[in-house]
């Protein structure tokens, strides 16, 4: 089976899904044709988590197909201050 590898950066409280002790962007390997939703499942982020996802610098929906080498940012909305 062909696979793709994507780089994922988690921001703010989504960082709790980082592997223990990990810092910075993480690489995940997924089956070719995997979507953003597949990636979130692999990371362990619940499907209803409030987050903003960007793939290669653009906002992306959960059904967006990921390309090999894609850079994914996962951010949680916060306010105040």
């Amino acid at each position: 089976m062909r696979t793709i590898t994507v780089s994922v950066t988690l921001f703010a409280d989504l960082r709790r899904y980082l592997p223990r002790g990990a810092e910075g962007p993480q690489r995940y390997t997924l089956p070719d044709g995997a979507t953003l939703a597949d990636l979130l499942r692999t990371i362990g982020v619940p499907p209803d988590a409030e987050l903003t996802a960007a793939v290669d610098g653009e906002l992306a929906a959960q059904d967006a197909t990921l390309r090999d080498g894609a850079e994914v940012l996962l951010l949680s909305p916060m306010e105040g201050g």
Partner: peptide, 23 residues
């Protein structure tokens, strides 16, 4: 802390600015 306040604990406010900009 881990479940509800980790972002504030680690960064304080302003950790979601990239998201705001992307949106």
């Amino acid at each position: 802390m881990d479940e509800k306040h980790r972002a504030f604990h680690e960064f304080g406010t302003g950790a979601a600015m990239q998201g705001k900009s992307l949106e």
